[in-house]
Nucleic acid binder design. Structure first.
Lengths: 144, 144
DNA sequence: TTGCTTTGGTTGCATATTACAACCTAAATC
DNA sequence: GATTTAGGTTGTAATATGCAACCAAAGCAA
């Protein structure tokens, strides 16, 4: 069905276009937190702390990559490590006070940018768009 | 309005999640063409040739980055340069026959992956999702 | 014509991101 | 107690990217 193929083609093209710009946009918006750093820090904040291994599994990153990203965040004073009392191999990672502030600020900037871009959308469209993205990503999880 | 904010938050979160994975997904799907190479080559194909400067402007990349990406594509035999007869500074870039084939193949894989992910969506939802993404990106262009 | 400026591109750094493999330490298992 | 497994780090290499300096070809001005 041609119409259906057209829709799929547009979805592919537009999601790809967005993805291509996302890192650079994040870098411009909040240079102190790359898209990946932001994501990791946000996850720590969300989860009230977690292990490096969990981050690696969740974001399909190598554990060495996570290790270095976390080191960088620690050097910046955004993350602290707490050795788990029951298992001395494990470091439970938490945002510091400063990290939480920086995250909140970057998050606010991101949210504002999205809010601006979506300013003239009506509520029903916004809600449907959100639900479509949720649905799309939920499927994708399983294929990745 | 809380509901509206929720929708914006979800859109932000889900688009970001997609973006985070996109490069790695592309690399797994078609290792011979990174997301950026794919994009550049696709643009050349679309536009029936264009200059490196045009690519840089369109994708907000440094001209040195484009220069090197194009060199790589040329080394692989995917792109050829034609010096403009009227201006010897300018190289008009075109996909080669091979480049067009590789692009088509990568494009087919990408399209298939999207088609699979969207297999159980009904036509109306697909069309609306596509239109939302178009609308979103159209706005974004102006802010970037 | 002869210089100055602009434009298209390349190259020399410096950095960042990432994966893979080898390794270390602490737990878990046998 | 010895071996295996799990959580992390470090060495190494590849890739991506931007900035600045540079080169060559136009374009422009006097």
């Amino acid at each position: 069905m041609a119409k259906r193929d057209d829709s799929v083609g547009i979805i592919q093209q537009e999601l790809t276009a967005f993805a291509r710009r996302a890192r650079a946009t994040a870098a411009r918006m909040h240079p102190e937190l790359s898209l990946v750093s932001y994501t990791l820090l946000a996850h720590l904040d969300d989860q009230k702390g977690c292990r490096a291994t969990d981050l690696a599994a969740h974001y399909l990153l190598d554990k060495s990559t996570v290790s270095r990203q976390i080191s960088a965040l620690e050097r910046l004073g955004y993350v602290e490590r707490r050795v788990a009392p029951d298992d001395h191999r494990v470091q439970v990672l938490h945002p510091t006070e400063l990290g939480a502030q920086v995250l909140a600020s970057a998050g606010a900037q991101r949210r504002q940018a999205f809010t601006d871009r979506l300013a003239d959308w009506d509520d029903a469209d916004l809600e449907r768009f959100a639900s479509y993205l949720l649905r799309y990503n939920a499927t994708q999880q399983q294929l990745d």
